[in-house]
Design a protein around this nucleic acid. Structure first.
Lengths: 324, 324
DNA sequence: TTGTAAGCGTTATCAA
DNA sequence: TTGATAACGCTTACAA
């Protein structure tokens, strides 16, 4: 490993001069500067980040944390984060599961964007601080050093259900996601509220608890098919489960939307091909905005007002335009 | 930031004792050990990795590099890598684009898995060394410190084309990927070889240059539809382009497979729903194996024989079972 | 314009 | 069983 000393020796100068050259300080002669830079190239010298970080007491690295490998919209979020972070001279590391807390606490990163729901609020509250701002996605944490960025689930879900009702649907089923997650709660609440506003009763037996995975939607639909009569419309808390349900119906000769309508939430890649009516979340933008707020907070602005991202409804033919 | 000194002071011991406790050394009394550990918890002390890395001269962090956010199979590769790496006590950082070289050269990682084709062979040859082994995916680099893991494209592509011919297809079109990539070359070569073995001529005008993205497949199909007569079967170098082509045909009233058959390569998420005949690459396993070889090489074994992963064909109904 | 030296947090060596 | 001290590679006051 070639270090700053090797460069200094080869260039016949002191290490501090090399350091000054590399950091663009003005107190160094033109000819020495050129000589040093050439030597660096020749020896292919790269500064050791450990030394740098240790001295500086901080880094310029943003951390992004996720862990659910089944949902491909993460790639879009990462893309948005990556673009903003790179444009602003920061580095990005993405990490999963266990390494994450370590990378946050050990000065290897200077701020984090957290998507993984497995990372507990309590842990984040402990880690967040003046020198380590955090942005959390899909949940709200009240903490002067944590900015929350959430999708406005309630309004578009209301609009979606109201639209479905307007099209003549009256009997609903609901497939929910993990019950402790804020977004699932909000989507379900919107669903119930709109039904109530329209004097439509909803029976608890028409609720199916899923986990946002395709398989749980498939299972919910299978169970549903055992009951006396199908609902008109099965509302799913996300696309994966909606797609699972569509497959289950298809496998059992039940037509969508003629026999039953289905709606999802997310607008995942498959949704378009499957013709699934759903709510589109701007994921790239979500990542970009998250990175922007994080870096602004790292730089000293103290902005932790929760930020709501709006989503829009995509009507596709998993719902009939006009029920008979 | 609470450091080892603070812990030492609070516990009334020296920093070296704290260090010994934290690193599980045996030369420390039971009661001091307990006391120190308690203080660590109370103060929520986490060792600073920068100091550690500086002292050790290395880290336990593996780097994974990618940059094409459009292809969701990356998530599966990452998943495989993440599992192996975590099980073996290493940390994983994933990075994109520019940060990558920096993270490789600056002692922030101790080995890398490279998927991004934008990372040049030349650069990798410079970086790889005894203290920095590398694993590259989807290309072969000859270097005593670089292990190549490639998918065997040739054999399954041969089998696929032979199977299509057996089903009665004789007139082919081909949509290729980026022409400099090894996997594209190999897929195309297999295609040509099998045609030749079967005395089927292939005209250059039936070749369309794409870039692995859906849009280029769509465009290729549009161009194809302008010609006098369609081929029987359009072979695409990957699924994205095959799906683009399917959409183009669908949008123009041409039926798949009745009017034209289509094949892909990758078995991406959409392929199943679209009923695309394709070649399935075990991506999770690919990541897992890549991580395994990398860590073995970090630990001293010097294994750089190129590793070929086999893939298998999935016949779906984008190809007729038996052409009339 | 350049060099000397201290110090960042950690671990390893050696002495107590 | 413990503690003092040097060293890792870098930056930065300050001295020359």
């Amino acid at each position: 490993m070639v270090g700053i000393k090797d460069v200094a020796k080869a260039a016949g100068v002191s290490v501090s001069t090399v350091s000054n050259v590399l950091n663009g300080k003005s107190n160094v002669g033109e000819d020495t500067k050129v000589r040093v830079l050439n030597i660096c190239r020749e020896l292919s010298y790269y500064p050791n980040s450990a030394g740098k970080a240790l001295k500086a007491g901080k880094t310029n690295t943003i951390l992004f944390n996720f862990s659910d490998f089944d949902r491909s919209f993460f790639l879009k979020i990462i893309h948005g984060i990556s673009d903003y972070v790179n444009d602003n001279g920061y580095d990005l590391i993405i990490c999963t599961e266990k390494s994450c807390e370590k990378f946050m606490r050990s000065n290897l990163s200077c701020g984090g964007i957290i998507l993984d729901q497995k990372m507990k609020d309590e842990t984040l509250n402990k880690i967040a601080g003046n020198s380590y701002p955090i942005v959390v996605l899909d949940r709200i944490i009240e903490n002067p050093y944590i900015k929350s960025i959430v999708v406005n689930n309630y309004d578009p879900m209301c609009e979606l259900i109201q639209g479905v009702i307007k099209r003549g649907y009256r009997h609903f089923g609901f497939v929910g996601g993990p019950e402790h997650t804020d977004d699932n709660k909000e989507r379900y609440r919107a669903f119930r509220d709109v039904l109530e506003q329209n004097n439509i009763t909803f029976q608890q037996k028409s609720y199916f608890a899923g986990d946002y995975r395709e398989k749980s939607g498939y299972t919910a639909a299978k169970i549903l098919m055992l009951s006396q009569e199908l609902p008109d419309c099965l509302v799913c808390a996300n696309d994966n489960m909606a797609i699972g349900a569509m497959k289950a119906f298809r496998d059992n000769g039940i037509r969508v939307p003629e026999d039953i309508a289905i709606t999802g939430f997310d607008n995942c890649d498959l949704a378009e091909v499957m013709g699934l009516t759903t709510v589109s979340i701007p994921n790239y933008e979500r990542g970009y905005i998250a990175a922007r707020y994080l870096i602004e907070n790292i730089r000293g602005s103290r902005n932790v007002e929760p930020f709501k991202i709006s989503a829009k409804i995509l009507w596709r033919n998993s719902v009939l335009l006009k029920k008979k």
